[in-house]
Design a protein around this nucleic acid. Structure first.
Lengths: 63, 63
DNA sequence: GCAATATGACAAATACACTTTACATCGAGA
DNA sequence: TCTCGATGTAAAGTGTATTTGTCATATTGC
């Protein structure tokens, strides 16, 4: 899975910590997901979509 | 997370095993997800959406 | 009644998601 | 230069997703 987190974050000028706070996860989790070290759980993916007010399919892409 | 797997499966008259085969996971995984014992990983959620030719948001619902 | 199929569930094992703590690097600004 | 915020990564620990194997039950066809 690839993802557009870095871009979406940049569009809002949020740091990884800002996003982590909104998602209620650690900054390291955001970093790991963003750099592709692992994929989020489905509930976290939904939360990410909520925070960016879009669809999961618009953020995460089959690779 | 709630999900509409049972209904989608019924619409196609697929057994849990049929779906498991298409998803390339065990029947126990399909059963556990369907009965809400756990949520699928994000890659598996994408595969499920593919198999049913729809969106993740159309199958899995925030609860 | 019997075999076969479908479903639900549990246990043990492995893999992965996520946390906390910690350290290193880089760029911007005083 | 010194500091500070932002980022990348690593180790160790906890929890969850998924597997294989197994059992119980219900339903259907012969």
């Amino acid at each position: 899975m690839k993802n557009r987190l870095k871009v979406l974050r940049a569009e809002r000028d949020w740091s990884q910590q800002d996003l982590a706070d909104r998602l209620e996860v650690s900054r390291q989790s955001v970093n790991a997901i963003e750099t592709g070290r692992y994929d989020p759980s489905l509930p976290l993916a939904f939360k990410i979509a909520d925070v960016f007010e879009t669809q999961i399919e618009d953020i995460f892409l089959r690779d």
